[in-house]
Nucleic acid binder design. Structure first.
Length: 469
DNA sequence: TGAAATGTTGGGGCG
DNA sequence: ACGCCCCAACATTTC
């Protein structure tokens, strides 16, 4: 049958990989290739942490392939050129890749498919976005009906999962560049790349009767606790498939069907379906990457003050919970989901900055930065998206801190200058008497900034701004 | 997956 | 004992 290329993009795993399985079905020999595309690598500096996570993942994948009798081929260049060359040199019968619905990937793949036998199999989501649509074929734009439709159609179970191939035959004479270098910026984050780590984390989160999953509903918003799965970087690069995650959630839900905590599995599954929803939105409405989904929101006149934007990025807004989130992001490339909502709301509704500025900054910093989920999250917060939070839903950073970091331990962890501030002032350090400021080493305006704005006033401005449109 | 403003209720202090 | 006021607690409406 000849060779087939498994063109790896964001499916860095051997288990439950439909793309790899299809490639193996259609060829005797597999050429697993990852292409370092100048479109991405030229911009690597801007996405250092995510690049490093990817590169570490490639090293891990290469080891896994080696254990299966294969190896990873690294090539550098425009994908169409690299693939043309490989195809002609090794009489390749087909190129198999997982579908990717971000705008660059779609253009790239469409153009390659015109000259090469590219076949797109599977996707980063559980199902193809064209599968879960309304009866008349139009896409869902409201989450709840989408979620219900999803539940009625798809009930993955363990037997649906594909085993990792035992042996992968790969031609021995194919030249490869060296595996890309992994820098040290990942050291600060808690994420180790690779399929095994992803599987281990999934098992730790969902396995057993005491699994954190069962406390998910109660704990997920608590920034001071590790109640979330923190699996997003693994899902982002396909070190874990959506299907594997969903199967684990379902099995846990069944295990606990008659016990407390069953809602946790349901709630987490819903979060995975939100991810499917945003993948679907990006697929059906690619223009959301450029502007607001809701046309009537495209004329908002944002303030876009660069100095204020910088204060937000640096975590020096003077609002402890906002600064904690932004510093966690800068330090680790990851942020607790509740903190993402709080910081995003602050940027959009207190600083009145265009949500796309925030989207771009998050994309630059996040290890799990994904065009669909990141865009969906930002448009949700800004109230510009599908089924978004209404424009008047404005987070109060003090109340959010009090609710979801009651003792301020999340704040103290990421904003060390507040570490000695007592609990009763941790969310509003500006209310500390001067003597206490001196005693706790947190003098406002010196050790930690005064709040950069009056939330009540900005809230009114935001309401006006949205109303004018 | 919000918060503020406004409305309602009921217990208790008080004359 | 009773009406009145105050206000906390809760509910509803509004942005």
């Amino acid at each position: 049958m000849g060779s087939t290329i498994w063109w790896i993009r964001r499916d860095l795993r051997l288990a439950d990989n439909q793309t790899l399985a299809a490639a193996m079905l259609h060829g005797d020999e597999i050429i697993p290739v990852f292409i370092l595309d100048p479109f991405f690598t030229q911009n690597r500096g801007a996405h250092l942490r995510r690049s490093d996570f990817l590169h570490a993942g490639l090293q891990y994948l290469n080891s896994s392939l080696a254990r299966s009798g294969s190896r990873l081929i690294i090539r550098r260049g425009k994908p169409v050129d690299v693939l043309s060359q490989l195809t002609s040199e090794y009489s390749v019968g087909g190129i198999y890749a997982e579908a990717d619905f971000s705008s660059y990937a779609r253009q790239r793949d469409n153009s390659i498919a015109q000259s090469l036998p590219l076949k797109l199999v599977g996707s980063a989501g559980f199902s193809h976005p064209s599968e879960v649509v309304k009866a008349d074929g139009s896409p869902y734009t409201v989450f709840t009906p989408f979620m219900k439709a999803w539940h009625s159609r798809h009930l993955p179970s363990r037997t649906d999962l594909l085993q990792a191939p035992g042996h992968i035959a790969t031609p021995g004479d194919i030249a490869s560049e060296a595996l890309p270098h992994v820098g040290c910026v990942l050291d600060a984050s808690q994420f180790h790349a690779g399929e095994a780590e992803a599987t281990r984390r999934l098992e730790a989160f969902t396995g057993g009767i005491d699994a954190p999953l069962f406390a998910y509903q109660d704990q997920r918003d608590r920034m001071d606790r590790g109640g979330t799965s923190a699996l997003s970087p693994y899902l982002r690069f396909g070190m874990l498939s959506a299907r594997q995650a969903m199967v684990a959630a379902r099995e846990a839900a069944q295990l606990s069907a008659n016990q407390t905590g069953e809602d946790g599995a349901e709630t987490w599954l819903n979060e995975l379906i939100w991810r499917e929803f945003y993948i679907s939105i990006l697929y059906h409405f690619p223009e959301v990457t450029r502007h607001s989904f809701r046309p009537e929101m495209r004329g908002i006149r944002w303030r876009n003050d660069p100095a204020e934007f910088n204060a937000w990025r640096n975590g020096t807004t003077g609002f402890p919970v906002v600064d904690a989130g932004m510093r966690q992001l800068a330090a680790t490339g990851w942020m607790h989901n509740r903190a993402r909502m709080i910081t995003a709301s602050f940027l959009v509704k207190d600083l009145l900055v265009d949500w796309r500025w925030g989207e771009a900054y998050f994309m630059r910093q996040l290890v799990d930065g994904d065009p669909a989920a990141n865009n969906g999250g930002w448009q949700w917060t800004a109230g510009t998206g599908t089924d978004a939070a209404p424009y008047f839903r404005i987070f109060n950073p003090v109340l959010q801190g009090q609710k979801f970091d009651p003792q301020g331990s999340y704040i103290r962890k990421w904003v060390p200058e507040l570490s000695r501030v007592p609990d009763e002032h941790i969310h509003q350090p500006w209310r500390m008497p001067e003597l206490l400021q001196a005693n706790t080493g947190c003098r406002l305006g010196k050790d930690y900034p005064f709040p950069m704005l009056d939330h009540q006033a900005r809230r009114q401005m935001a309401l006006e701004m949205y109303k004018i449109v």
